[in-house]
Computed example of a mutant assay.
Amino acid sequence: MTELIKLEKVYKEGELQLENLDFEVFYNMLWVMAKTANYEIKPPLEWLDEFEELPILEILPEVMELLTGLMKTTKKK
């Protein structure tokens, strides 16, 4: 959760301080999302190797929308 909060902060503030993020966590979350959509994808490292370059800045808005939706609570205060 800590990495998700960091990622959300970087995204919302528009500051690309990506060096402060643990990308292994981020890549694993992306893989889980991809695996949910397609059960036939390869294991995480093999899947990542298929990309010449992962377009993080292009996919970040959609990923953040999905992750933000997951982190919202329905419990009333």
Rank of each mutant, 00 (worst) to 15 (best):
69 G>V: 11
41 I>L: 06
73 T>Q: 00
39 Y>K: 15
77 K>C: 00
27 Y>E: 09
41 I>P: 02
54 L>E: 01
33 M>A: 07
22 D>S: 02
24 E>W: 02
35 K>A: 03
58 E>F: 09
3 E>Y: 05
42 K>Q: 14
59 I>V: 11
35 K>Q: 10
44 P>F: 06
59 I>W: 08
42 K>H: 11
58 E>P: 04
42 K>S: 14
52 E>D: 15
46 E>P: 01
18 L>G: 01
18 L>I: 13
7 L>N: 00
46 E>K: 11
29 M>W: 04
10 V>Q: 09
13 E>P: 03
68 T>E: 08
64 M>A: 06
25 V>F: 05
32 V>S: 08
65 E>L: 13
29 M>H: 05
65 E>Q: 14
64 M>I: 10
64 M>H: 11
13 E>R: 15
24 E>Y: 07
54 L>F: 14
27 Y>N: 09
52 E>T: 15
19 E>G: 08
8 E>K: 14
43 P>K: 14
60 L>G: 01
47 W>K: 09
27 Y>T: 08
28 N>L: 05
76 K>A: 00
42 K>T: 14
53 E>Y: 13
20 N>E: 09
26 F>A: 01
63 V>E: 05
68 T>Q: 10
7 L>Y: 01
57 L>C: 00
29 M>E: 02
19 E>V: 12
58 E>Y: 12
6 K>D: 07
17 Q>A: 12
7 L>S: 03
55 P>L: 12
37 A>W: 15
42 K>R: 14
15 E>Q: 15
64 M>Q: 09
3 E>A: 02
2 T>K: 09
1 M>Y: 07
18 L>E: 02
2 T>R: 09
66 L>M: 11
27 Y>C: 06
51 F>M: 05
32 V>G: 04
5 I>E: 14
46 E>T: 07
20 N>W: 11
70 L>H: 09
18 L>Q: 03
69 G>L: 08
71 M>K: 02
37 A>P: 11
52 E>K: 15
32 V>E: 12
28 N>W: 04
46 E>S: 06
45 L>W: 12
22 D>V: 10
55 P>N: 11
7 L>H: 01
31 W>E: 02
26 F>T: 05
1 M>E: 04
30 L>K: 10
44 P>Y: 10
76 K>T: 00
49 D>P: 05
20 N>Q: 13
12 K>T: 14
67 L>R: 10
56 I>H: 02
51 F>C: 01
55 P>T: 11
74 T>F: 00
12 K>S: 10
67 L>P: 01
6 K>R: 07
5 I>G: 11
70 L>Y: 06
2 T>A: 05
21 L>Q: 03
38 N>P: 09
13 E>I: 14
1 M>V: 13
43 P>L: 07
33 M>C: 08
15 E>Y: 14
70 L>T: 04
21 L>H: 03
6 K>P: 02
22 D>Y: 03
